[in-house]
Design a protein around this nucleic acid. Structure first.
Length: 882
RNA sequence: GGGCGCGUAGCUCAGUGGUACGAGCGCUUGACUCACAUUCAAGAGGUCGCAGGUUCGAUCCCUGCCGUGCCCA
């Protein structure tokens, strides 16, 4: 076969789609149950169904695919279960935007029509992200694809809701919740983001009812004055003790409210007296409960003042604030206004300032559910990688509040609760009830709200495998092996999956949680639309290929740490893909007459033993690091080996045999080249699936695809004692190259060399492998002289372990320069010797350090002394010559 | 206020109780050498944040401090 027509630049276009199609057609992604074997399972963190692939997805899914491909090659029945999430708020927002362009609101359409629109939207865009994952090379089992709103998962959601309700772990009640006036829905506590803001704090006088003066309270939200039902002070506060029990008149409102004492009040903050608005502040709400205060809600769901706000009714909360400030000032109630920096809660979706509000909602009682979820992690049955996230997780669950799960949206799982219009009974049921279980009435109305999207994704690891049915998949693939996700959703998702799994499966949902960091831009900034600094992964794929994107995302990646991504980085990875391509091209071009087979051990030369030995090391290392989810280090190891050792050294040395006359040597070298290349391609496959497949299919191979070939293993017979001797030869080559470079010897001009070896071992080593030095250092011939022979006069020299090499320069030598160079080398050797000696004369070191370490130092000392001796002799000779 | 991460070559980051082996980019010098100029060769460049402690030995372990970023309250 003629390989010379293979282009010298790798072009991923066509190649990638071709192989993805091939893998799919061959059913390689499909997980098959094999009861004899232990499975390896990952469930995908389901992306938003109408979303598109961003760089964070690319990173996260690349890591999953690497682990899946690696384990698949190791022979595990491997399942990567894909799917998408209906993403209530986000999806509704998009469809609402679309409607707005037509001048419509979702209320204009009504629930049913609106949902039709959303489903249509989902049909249109739901495949986008799936196709993008395929572009990335994701080897998901698409036959098991799930969507959080599909029938099976919806059944799981209902089942969980009903069981928790029956157990008393889900309840409905009037509590303070976070309300987003833009999204017009409640939010759970973690959906509120706190941000420091520069604001004002208003000191307002509340006159005593008896006319004996006033008490001053401080607030950042004056509009809530309208809903105040008390003023609170700390019982220990001397300033106010006498006033406790009195009443004050609420400015502009006229309502008489009591002054109460409560430990919660911070005497140091503001004036030490606080207004209490149970309907619009979580702490005030608690205080209201303790003191039996009335709850007066003054705002509606759009953040406008309601009928309880009197003449302010209809004003937006901020307009109302302005109006109140003006009027309080005019009427002499405003004592002062100060600047204040405090943190303000905002909606994580739309950044609107969240309004705490009392409202009737559904909640999950968290304490009983949190405990097993804490225990399972403490017992190490679920392990976070890196470990430090364990503490964050446990700390959160230990301080958890009840979870508000009802959302005032239409897109989602409707709450399976019905209210009897006749008797007011609440019916929670798996099936839609036809009549009231209490009064038998048939006018039942289902709760209009839907569940928090995270409620359904919390069930993901088992609902996707068929739960609540006892399916084969569930029995075999659960618990899953590892969850790969970002630290930003540990609370949202990871914790919730764990407590739901402990409640319903009585077993952890996954053994490991591999945490990834954020992908930032080249300057370390978060990628964002507003900054315009985002990099579209599809653009990277389009330009450089998916392998390049994957590799670029892996290198320098440490679990749990943020990484930076830039086009430069992508280019470097592209170069690596091209390097693999060209090295493979070289091997293929030199396989003429190749007879497949293992390299015959007894025929191997030092360079062969060295590269096989290094391949062995790298195989172990890559395996070990992938097992620890350290894809960054694994990538680095295989990169270094491939580029620096295989390409820069072994291939260059292999040319000696390939282009030489010894047919046997050629045959042997072909086998080594092939073996190393083929195995390193397999090591690379999980990282760069496409280019490795493309090349592998061109190479002689057994099996249908590299993706289902066996993961390479350490081979004991490739462990060679003398492999390290290669380093001496490499030092010799580097030394001569160095001399040539310093003396500006043109690359085309071959040099002569004289070797003076100190011991027979080194002499033999150099003699046997002199062709390596000749080829790589461009030396035409070498004379070997003995210890007793004088060194060549006008020559440059380099000292390696056990020998020195001279390059006669025929009068071109700049003696002074050479002397200066040697003196520098002498000084550096002397420094080394002095540090080594310091250790070797230290009794503590000699008696306490491990013997190998001491012996290593001794050997070092011997080597350095010998090298120093040679340098000194050389210096002396040159000085005399000068 | 509590918790956590980071601080190593000009830049971006790896890394380990035993001389920092670092890597990429950048920089200097040379080469279109028959796989690759998306390349090859050679080189310069670091008190591994500061101060203590543990240890025969610490960049890597402990304590404090400084700078920086994040999470939670």
């Amino acid at each position: 076969m003629d390989f010379t027509n293979i282009p010298s630049v790798y072009d991923p276009k066509n190649v990638e789609d071709k192989w993805y199609r091939f893998w799919e057609e061959q059913n390689f992604f499909r997980a098959e149950i094999d009861p004899e074997k232990e499975p390896f399972t990952i469930v995908i963190p389901p992306p938003n169904v109408t979303g598109h692939l961003h760089i964070g997805h690319a990173l996260n899914n690349t890591i999953q695919d690497i682990l899946i491909r690696y384990k698949r090659m190791q022979g595990y029945p491997t399942l990567w279960l894909p799917g998408t999430d209906h993403a209530g708020i986000a999806t509704e927002a998009k469809v609402k935007e679309q409607l707005a362009e037509e001048g419509l609101s979702k209320y204009d359409l009504g629930r049913e029509k609106f949902l039709e629109r959303v489903w249509a939207w989902k049909e249109k865009y739901g495949d986008t992200i799936v196709n993008q994952l395929k572009k990335l090379g994701a080897s998901c089992d698409w036959s098991r694809f799930r969507f959080t709103l599909d029938e099976g998962l919806s059944r799981a959601v209902r089942e969980v809701f009903v069981r928790l309700y029956e157990k008393g772990l889900i309840y409905r009640g009037d509590y303070i919740v976070n309300w987003c006036p833009t999204c017009k829905t409640t939010l759970s506590d973690i959906e509120v983001e706190h941000e420091e803001r520069n604001d004002k704090i208003y000191h307002v006088r509340y006159p005593f009812s008896d006319g004996s003066g006033h008490i001053t309270v401080a607030t950042t939200r004056p509009e809530t004055i309208l809903g105040d039902t008390a003023v609170a002070v700390n019982p220990e506060d001397e300033r106010y003790r006498a006033h406790i029990g009195k009443t004050v008149v609420l400015p502009l409102v006229g309502r008489e409210i009591p002054i109460i004492a409560d430990d919660y009040v911070d005497m140091e903050f503001g004036t030490g007296a606080v207004k209490v608005t149970p309907a619009h502040d979580p702490n005030d709400f608690e205080m209201g409960l303790r003191h039996g205060l009335p709850v007066i809600k003054v705002m509606d769901e759009e953040g406008r003042m309601n009928e309880n706000a009197g003449k302010f009714k209809g004003l937006d909360r901020y307009e109302c604030r302005k109006a109140l400030i003006r009027e309080l000032g005019e009427k002499g109630y405003m004592e002062k206004i100060e600047d204040l920096t405090h943190s303000v809660g905002q909606c994580y979706r739309c950044d609107t300032v969240v309004e705490p509000m009392v409202s009737k909602q559904w909640f999950v009682r968290m304490k009983p559910l949190a405990e097993p979820a804490i225990d399972v992690v403490k017992q190490g049955r679920v392990k976070f990688v890196p470990e430090r996230f364990t503490k964050i997780y446990i700390n959160w669950l230990e301080n958890i509040h009840d979870w508000c799960i009802s959302r005032q949206l239409w897109w989602g799982h409707r709450i399976p609760a019905w209210y009897c219009q006749d008797c007011g009974e609440t019916i929670v049921s798996r099936e839609t009830p036809v009549k009231c279980s209490k009064c038998g009435g048939s006018s039942l109305e289902q709760d209009p709200d839907v569940l928090d999207t995270w409620f359904s994704s919390a069930l993901w690891p088992f609902s996707t495998l068929g739960w609540p049915d006892d399916t084969q998949d569930l029995r075999y693939f659960y618990p899953t092996s590892v969850l790969v996700t970002g630290y930003d959703i540990i609370f949202f998702w990871v914790a919730r999956m764990i407590f739901m799994a402990m409640e319903f499966m009585k077993e952890e949902p996954f053994r490991y949680v591999a945490i990834t960091g954020l992908v930032r831009d080249a300057l370390g900034r978060k990628m964002s639309k507003s900054l315009g600094n985002g990099i579209d992964p599809l653009e990277v794929i389009e330009k450089y290929g998916a392998d390049t994107l994957r590799f670029a995302l892996c290198t320098g990646n440490t679990p749990g740490n943020d990484i930076r991504f830039s086009w430069e980085k992508a280019e470097h990875s592209r170069n690596f893909a091209n390097k693999i391509w060209n090295a493979s091209r070289f091997v293929m071009m030199n396989l003429e007459g190749f007879e497949p087979g293992e390299p015959e051990l007894e025929k191997l030369s030092l360079k062969d033993r060295w590269i096989l030995s290094r391949l062995n090391d790298v195989t172990s290392e890559v395996t070990e690091f992938l097992d620890k989810f350290e894809v960054g280090i694994a990538a680095q190891k295989v990169y270094d080996f491939f580029w620096s050792e295989f390409c820069d050294w072994y291939i260059e040395m292999a040319k000696i045999d390939l282009y030489g006359d010894d047919k046997n040597a050629k045959k042997k070298t072909q086998r080594v080249l092939y073996t190393v290349l083929e195995r390193v391609l397999r090591l690379l496959h999980p990282l760069m699936p496409f280019v490795t497949e493309e090349i592998w299919q061109h190479l002689p191979h057994e099996g249908r695809s590299i993706m289902v070939s066996a993961w390479p293993e350490f081979r004991p017979e490739w462990k060679f004692e003398d492999a390290g001797d290669m380093e001496i030869l490499m030092d010799a080559v580097r030394g001569i190259r160095n001399i040539r470079a310093e003396m500006n010897v043109p690359p085309a001009k071959k040099a002569r060399a004289v070797v003076r070896a100190g011991d027979s071992g080194t002499l033999k080593l150099l003699r046997q492998n002199i062709d390596i030095i000749h080829t790589l250092a461009r030396v035409s011939e070498t004379d070997f002289i003995s210890e007793e022979d004088p060194a060549p006069g006008k020559a440059m020299s380099c000292v390696i372990r056990g020998a020195e090499i001279f390059i006669p320069m025929e009068g071109l030598v700049d003696l002074d320069a050479e002397i200066a160079r040697l003196q520098k080398e002498k000084a550096s050797l002397e420094k080394e010797i002095s540090t080594v000696r310091k250790k070797l004369t230290n009794h503590g070191f000699l008696s306490k350090a491990p013997r190998e370490v001491v012996e290593k130092e001794r050997q070092k000392e011997r080597d350095y002394i010998e090298m120093l001796k040679r340098v000194e002799e050389r210096l002396k000779a040159l000085t005399e010559l000068g």
